[in-house]
């Protein structure tokens, strides 16, 4: 859902730009707690993968397509703050070099595709992990559900921004209904890709998956007790 220039008026674009800059500023500080020598290469990989995956538009019917947003995926793999930075780098490269997403709309896109999907994705993921059995096998399904939820939420936030600062005289309610309908379908694709990718990394190196860390660390403690 890369927003082009022109959809939203200047005040709204400035406001989303300020929110995006503030969020990225906070992320630059907080990401320190998520990044060390082992996880830093993962952040580069996650960003590269999100860029690549966003090139794959999958059909969702009636001549419409969608692609991965990747915020929830990145948040579960490398943490929400680093995940936001990863998606933001992707969006900047897309806007500057691929003309995908506008320049005045860059703040809007960072808010929708980065901030909203990473934070909503991470919050839903953590909530599911809190109620599910403490098993590593729950990580990928939780990530998939979180990814699914993040897409219609981002669509709803766009609709809200459109209601506030849309340049065309179009009924905001119609936009919201249509956006939610299509993005529930696109969210299924988001869930499938996120579940498969998180599942694959959890299968080989659960310790490198930020969202699986509490479980992996607990398991390691258990092993030590047995060994002693």
């Amino acid at each position: 859902m890369h927003v082009p220039d022109g959809f939203l008026d200047a005040p709204t674009s400035v406001a989303t730009g300020v929110v995006a800059a503030a969020a990225v500023g906070v992320a630059l500080r907080k990401a320190r707690t998520e990044l060390d020598d082992r996880t830093a290469p993962m952040a580069g990989l996650v960003a590269a993968f999100v860029f690549a995956a966003q090139m794959i538009n999958f059909p969702v019917g009636a001549g419409t397509s969608g692609h991965l947003m990747g915020g929830a995926l990145a948040a579960v793999l490398v943490g929400p703050w680093t995940g936001l930075l990863c998606v933001s780098v992707v969006l900047v490269v897309q806007a500057l070099f691929m003309a995908d997403g506008g320049i005045t709309a860059l703040g809007t896109n960072v808010v929708l595709i980065g901030v909203v999907t990473a934070l909503v994705g991470y919050v839903v993921f953590r909530a599911l992990q809190a109620v599910l059995p403490r098993r590593v096998a729950t990580v990928a399904p939780s990530a998939a559900v979180a990814a699914f939820v993040s897409v219609p939420v981002a669509a709803a936030v766009f609709s809200l921004l459109f209601a506030i600062g849309g340049t065309a005289p179009v009924d905001a309610g119609r936009v919201l209904t249509a956006m939610l309908g299509w993005h529930v379908l696109i969210g299924i694709g988001e869930a499938v890709v996120t579940g498969l990718v998180v599942g694959a990394v959890v299968a080989v190196r659960p310790d490198l998956v930020r969202g699986a860390r509490p479980l992996v660390e607990a398991r390691e403690l258990e092993i030590r007790t047995v060994a002693a």
Binding site: M1, M55, T64, S65, G166, T167, W182, H183
Partner: peptide, 22 residues
Amino acid sequence: ASSHPDGLEHVAGETGFLDSAE
């Protein structure tokens, strides 16, 4: 990859604000 318009573009066309894109 599918070359169909994405969800946002489709909605913009359907509800009538696609032309506001620059």
